[in-house]
Amino acid sequence: MRKLGLIGGMSWVSTRAYYEDINRIVQRQAGPESSAPMLIESLNFRPLYRIGEKAEWDRAADVLIESARRLESAGAEGLVIAANSMHHVYDKVAAAVSIPIIHIADCVAKAMQEKGVDRAALLGSRNVMMQDFYRERLVAQGIEILPPDEEIADRLDAIIYDELMIGKVTRSSERELKTILTNLGKDGAEAVVLGCTELELIVDTDANVLPVFDGAHIHARAAAEFILGEG
């Protein structure tokens, strides 16, 4: 099996989910005694929390580049950035190392194409919903993405940063997400992309009116396939 490097800590909640998902898939594929060869660098999220200005993104790129280089030097054969929003700096990080970095949006687009879905809504933090770095990657793969709703983006941003990233789950937020997904279906979405690694905490992906593509789980599956030599 190939050794994967995982840049995590953004947040620790999602890093835990990635580790569990990747190992469960490897165990199913390679046998019950197997576990995934991985190097994990868990970054301090505080300096990267809720950033938005160019200078802040430049600093974030530097932090992730240093992390990627450390993981490569330690023997990682491929990398995963375990956070949707930090794919904002993907191109800079990918250019700084000689090993592949698996892009979360490419994995999501592939999964949607396999299911014949070509029109979806993207949910996540304000950065993910309102900026182009994630959306354009899906569009380039032939997926039409509904225009972002600024009110929904602001509300989800609050839920993600004030609740989910510190491990807090509330029934009111669960109900609110269910209402949002129902309304998106009425607006013409064929499916919903969860563009935040923590949103799965309050979205039942199997019990909604729309198909839900959980980016973190899809990304983790691609990471496991890489480890197993399938990707």
Score class of each variant (00 low, 15 high):
227 I>P: 02
98 S>P: 06
63 V>E: 10
198 E>A: 08
115 K>I: 03
137 R>G: 11
115 K>A: 15
97 V>Y: 13
226 F>S: 01
81 I>Q: 03
135 R>W: 15
172 S>Q: 11
11 S>N: 09
56 E>G: 13
89 V>G: 07
32 P>S: 00
139 V>M: 14
105 A>F: 10
197 T>M: 07
199 L>Y: 09
104 I>Q: 12
78 G>F: 03
213 F>E: 07
180 I>F: 07
110 K>G: 08
16 R>T: 13
115 K>Y: 07
118 D>Q: 15
15 T>N: 12
135 R>D: 14
4 L>C: 06
140 A>C: 11
231 G>Y: 05
41 E>M: 00
102 I>S: 11
63 V>I: 01
94 A>E: 12
218 I>F: 03
24 R>M: 11
153 A>P: 14
75 G>S: 10
53 E>T: 12
44 N>A: 01
53 E>Q: 15
169 V>H: 08
79 L>D: 11
179 T>Q: 10
173 S>V: 00
103 H>D: 13
4 L>G: 04
118 D>P: 05
46 R>E: 13
131 Q>S: 15
191 A>G: 15
13 V>G: 02
156 L>T: 04
91 D>K: 03
91 D>Y: 04
42 S>T: 10
16 R>M: 11
52 G>E: 10
3 K>R: 09
68 A>K: 03
123 L>W: 09
31 G>D: 04
39 L>N: 09
82 A>Q: 02
71 L>E: 03
23 N>T: 10
98 S>W: 02
172 S>F: 05
13 V>N: 01
157 D>H: 15
188 G>N: 13
150 E>I: 10
90 Y>P: 02
127 N>W: 02
7 I>F: 02
179 T>R: 00
94 A>I: 02
216 A>K: 06
143 I>V: 14
55 A>D: 15
1 M>I: 06
123 L>C: 12
176 E>C: 04
191 A>Q: 11
165 M>V: 09
100 P>Y: 10
76 A>T: 05
202 I>G: 05
185 G>D: 11
181 L>S: 07
217 H>L: 08
158 A>S: 14
7 I>M: 09
15 T>F: 08
137 R>C: 13
